[in-house]
Amino acid sequence: MNIFRLAGDMTHLFSVLVLLLKIHTIKSCAGISLKTQELYAIVFTTRYLDLFTTYISLYNTIMKLIFLGSSISIVWYMRHHKVVRRSYDKDQDTFRHYLLMLPCLLLALLINEKFTFLEVMWAFSLYLEAVAILPQLVLLQRTRNIDNLTGQYVLLLGAYRALYVLNWIYRYFTEENYVHWITWVSGIVQTLLYADFFYYYFQSWKNNVKLQLPA
């Protein structure tokens, strides 16, 4: 495992920890899109079906279980926890996220590495992950006050994606036969979706003012 991949996984892990910290300690999910969280729960469930068929490493298995468990529990907290769910910005979080799923499924049926159930699900999870952040970005833009934890959560997620792109570049040049167009294209699309957010985040950081996205 190279340094970019490890750093990518760690920023992903930190992003989840930041979100859990907000939910568990402050008992708030204000500014967090349930739609995005539901999409992530579906992304990890469909991608990690290979937990039952392929063993890669202990690290791999543990991380998969963490991402599965945390994404499902975050959705549970936002929907059912009696305190947390009250802070959910339901009226602002109106992105019709299920509309993203059908095109991703059709694309996965058409473009996959092999036409098997696991491979189609795997491709579906990559396409869906690429667009899963959209409801969150839309909610950020609508929420006038973005708190620090929410800003850091999205920043860490974006950093995780950018580090994975570096990881692919590194692997392409150091490993033989390492070519994965589906992963690369959907991963690059996903990373580009964060570009706008990154821009405003660093502007606010540089000017030492509170993060606000233009309407």
Partner: peptide
């Protein structure tokens, strides 16, 4: 493991 390369990623 050339076929599964990439599937070792999360």
């Amino acid at each position: 493991t050339k076929d599964s390369a990439g599937k070792d990623e999360l």
